[in-house]
Design a protein around this nucleic acid. Structure first.
Lengths: 148, 148
DNA sequence: CCGATGTCAGGGGTACTGAGATTC
DNA sequence: CGAATCTCAGTACCCCTGACATCG
């Protein structure tokens, strides 16, 4: 029953870029997380679905590489997606080390639903920014990330 | 022995503001975390030290409110700071429910060391940005956070 | 009694490490 | 043989919930 209430935060932190980034990211992740949870999934599930949609059926190792989900976490995420009927996991006949993971029809529908839900979350996150500033923010963040 | 290697990430994510924020924040937190770890502390320790330095000796509940560390985590963080000799915890004679937490002389020295270390981390984080863009980024992040 | 406080136990989500077994 | 793949166990950090006893 603890309300977070105000968040004064030490002055040292309030102007620290890494702190502002962390706070802003936390707001975004909360908005995204809430909406994904309402749709019955977590971020990892969305990432894997998005990667499979973009790159087609893949081995689990490939999913790990293309989805930014750690390869040791892919197993459980795929298992959960299979349970929800959103992807299928089948042994690869050409390489018996591998499982081929594919998006199901239901998964494709779900992914489109999640896309819409996340677009809303982005709008809410940046609601107070005019379009010009949104672009500038995206540009600056890309710059921070460039070369990493 | 897993190298993170490249991080293609699905196209849907690469242009999503919440994703860019999360990635950039992760870079910052890693830089900060590494340096704090090299100095023997974690983020929580720095936050509590900074709050105590700014607001003076405080009850643990007050530390929770002023440091952005969840009140149920303050106990352990203060305990660890006490073990390192950076703060002291004494019963409040005027209100026996309370412990008064204060920065020790060693804690004050440590805090200044950590300040310097974090300033370096900020520089490394924003190394690729000219001063003008740094200010702009801070402004935009503040805007995203305003009213939350 | 109400409310604030300190303490503790515990879970959830994300990120990672390391080891083992199988297969190429 | 070395390398890749899948799986699992475990760690770490951060954020949070719930409960409880104490004290004002």
């Amino acid at each position: 029953m603890e309300m977070t209430a105000d968040d004064p935060a030490p002055a040292r932190l309030r102007s620290m870029p890494s702190w502002l980034l962390a706070r802003a990211a936390a707001v975004g992740e909360q908005l995204v997380g809430e909406r994904l949870a309402a749709a019955g999934v977590r971020r990892h599930h969305y990432r894997v679905l998005a990667a499979l949609d973009e790159f087609g059926p893949s081995s689990q190792a490939a999913v790990g590489r293309s989805s930014s989900v750690h390869s040791s976490d892919v197993v459980a995420v795929v298992t959960e997606l299979v349970e929800r009927g959103l992807v299928s996991r089948m042994p690869d006949p050409e390489d018996r080390r591998r499982n081929v993971v594919s998006v199901t029809a239901a998964g494709a529908v779900k992914l489109r639903e999640l896309d819409a839900v996340l677009a809303e979350a982005q709008d809410e996150l940046l609601g107070s920014l005019p379009d010009r500033d949104r672009g500038e923010l995206v540009r600056l963040l890309g710059q921070v990330l460039s070369g990493r």
